[in-house]
């Protein structure tokens, strides 16, 4: 797949006062994908989104949105983008219907009540259309922000921490909404603290730390490349020393010798250090076990390792 919808080249942002928020960011977002941008607080996620959306002036570099420079051809670039900000920012006294209709007009589109109705229904806001925003719950307000961003039928949707402060049920509902949008051809770029969110939804993952894009990788490839697995065997009798025959495996002992832990990443099978070889070797040494379990490192583990590694 090589059909870029956003191309970022050499992007730098240094704020007044000297803080460098972004350092030479090069990134391409493919049409129709869900791209998750991960990073700790202050890593530069929101600044990156803000530069692409026109909220922050870049110090250097260029952003192309569907082939249009986001500064020199800002109209064509911005009309393709919908932005859901991190903060719950709303005109408190407006009704849901009015504020969503306002957004459509602001983005240069003629009134289209049918589309607004469709958007509100898809986000379960239809019953609240005449409510003032100040009367809505936090989750509802966040949905309104999504509705506003979708009101002008964007091809690209930026979700800046979309489920921050949202309960588990609503979070899962929002994931479903995002998937539906992707199915309808909308490219999604989301920033999140919730690794689970990226793991659940993203096609590709970018990790940003201290303003630098540390890596960009397909989620599955990232998990397989950097994710390690662990097999834990609960032994009948404790081991005090590692038998010589088992030295070639990456093993460790825990729980006073009752747990034998084998760490592997899937490549050991090829060089004869895989699980089946380990089990054969254990049988040969007459080491028996009563239970076993496996654990695969999550994206969170990978993320923490990456960030720690570069700190």
């Amino acid at each position: 797949m090589n059909d870029p919808i956003i191309t970022i080249n050499g992007l730098n942002k240094t704020y007044e006062g000297g803080f460098q928020a972004l350092t030479h960011i090069d990134l391409t977002i493919q049409r129709g994908e869900i791209f998750a941008l991960l990073g700790p607080n202050g890593a530069g996620k929101t600044t990156l989104i803000s530069v692409v959306c026109g909220l922050v002036n870049p110090t250097a570099g260029h952003v192309l949105v569907d082939g249009f420079d986001n500064i020199t051809h800002f109209r064509q670039a911005r009309e393709r983008i919908g932005l859901v900000p991190q903060e719950l920012t709303n005109e408190a006294f407006e009704t849901v219907w009015n504020t969503v209709s306002f957004s459509r007009g602001l983005f240069g589109k003629a009134p289209n009540p049918e589309h607004i109705e469709k958007v509100l229904k898809s986000l379960a806001l239809w019953d609240k259309r005449n409510n003032r925003l100040m009367t809505l719950s936090g989750g509802m307000k966040r949905r309104v922000l999504i509705a506003k961003a979708l009101s002008h039928e964007p091809r690209i949707l930026f979700l800046d921490e979309p489920t921050a402060g949202v309960d588990v049920e609503l979070r899962r509902e929002m994931w479903e909404v995002v998937r539906q949008l992707r199915d309808n051809g909308v490219t999604i770029i989301l920033t999140t603290h919730y690794i689970e969110e990226a793991e659940e939804m993203a096609d590709r993952i970018g990790v940003i730390n201290r303003g630098e894009l540390v890596l960009v990788e397909e989620k599955a490839a990232l998990m397989s490349k950097l994710g390690s697995k662990q097999l834990t065997l609960n032994l009948h009798s404790p081991l005090t020393d590692m038998p010589a025959n088992l030295q070639r495996f990456e093993l460790s002992l825990a729980a006073e010798g009752y747990e034998l832990i084998y760490t592997y990443d899937g490549s050991q099978d090829e060089d004869g250090h895989g699980i089946s070889e380990l089990l054969t070797a254990l049988e040969r040494e007459e080491i028996t076990f009563k239970d076993l379990n496996t654990r695969q490192s999550s994206l969170e583990d990978i993320f923490v390792d990456l960030v720690k590694e570069r700190a």
């Binding site: 911005r78 957004s103 602001l106 240069g108």
Partner: peptide, 8 residues
């Protein structure tokens, strides 16, 4: 944010 990100 909406005003500043709009194609206006």
């Amino acid at each position: 944010y909406e005003l500043l990100s709009a194609p206006i």
